[in-house]
């Protein structure tokens, strides 16, 4: 009985400790941002590996998600004779929810896992200790540029996802199923609000970018310096990021769209 209680206590203390380490790492990373402005090339490199390399998967998924929304939405809406509102449905669901959330999940799988593996291997091969030996702060030099790159890249990727999704929905709805071209756009433009819908979607994707990159870097930096440790950390990155994104999405939606 006492043993069980002690185990529970250990778990609690352990998770609190992890939380504390995570926040400390975040503070150190944020403290390094000012130095990053003197070396924009570091950020550029990371924007390439985090952002540019994720474009293809985000673009393809966005287009197909939009096309599926067009098909499914048409099927349901045509039963009520409301095919004209297909544009609203596709755009609202993409801009508000699917754009930020699916992009964040893809981002965690594509870029987050790569970040964790990279940092974890740097740690395992003692490159981080090497940097420290040369009096270079590894957090500022390695982690901060990656963190900022993720934060910048995520909203741009989500915007691409939503925009291509709308075009995909347009292609299926107007091109294949014969929804009226003008109604598709005009209904969308009257119902979708710039601040309520588009801006809130951007805020969501900023939060997700922040959290996903943070989790990925923390897991990589805190991973056990063995091949097994790195593989575990990579798995944890994807799992924790997905949980965090879906949970935060609920909270953000309740805050933004609740009356």
């Amino acid at each position: 009985m006492l043993e069980q209680l002690a185990r529970l206590g250990r778990i609690g203390i352990g998770s609190l400790e992890q939380l504390g380490r995570g926040h400390l790492l975040l503070l150190y990373m944020l403290a390094g941002i000012s130095e990053l402005f003197t070396r924009p090339r570091l950020l550029l490199n990371q924007l390439f590996s985090v952002g540019v390399l994720s474009v293809l998967i985000v673009a393809i998924s966005g287009t197909f998600v939009g096309m599926v929304l067009g098909l499914q939405g048409y099927y349901i809406l045509s039963q009520f004779g409301a095919e004209q509102t297909l544009g609203v449905m596709v755009a609202a669901s993409l801009v508000r929810e699917l754009g930020p959330v699916v992009t964040a999940l893809l981002f965690a799988g594509r870029a987050g896992s790569a970040l964790t593996a990279e940092i974890g291997l740097m740690k395992a091969t003692e490159q981080l200790s090497g940097l420290e030996m040369m009096a270079v702060n590894p957090v500022k030099r390695i982690l901060t540029p990656r963190f900022l790159a993720g934060f910048v890249a995520m909203p741009l990727l989500a915007a691409m996802f939503s925009a291509l999704g709308v075009l995909g929905g347009y292609f299926v709805g107007v091109g294949l199923l014969g929804v009226d071209d003008g109604a598709f756009w005009s209904q969308m433009q009257t119902k979708i609000d710039l601040y309520d819908d588009v801006l809130n979607g951007v805020i969501k994707s900023l939060v997700f970018g922040f959290v996903c990159t943070w989790i990925a870097l923390f897991q990589g930096y805190g991973s056990a310096p063995t091949s097994e440790g790195v593989s575990r950390a990579t798995t944890r990155t994807v799992v924790h990021s997905s949980f965090a994104v879906l949970g935060l999405d609920f909270i953000l939606t309740a805050l933004m769209f609740g009356e």
Binding site: V95, A159, M188, V202
Partner: peptide, 15 residues
């Protein structure tokens, strides 16, 4: 392209 997509969303999709 990212900013273009944002621009597209705010000009073409929203009000």
């Amino acid at each position: 392209v990212g900013f273009l997509a944002l621009f597209f969303l705010s000009m073409q999709v929203s009000n």
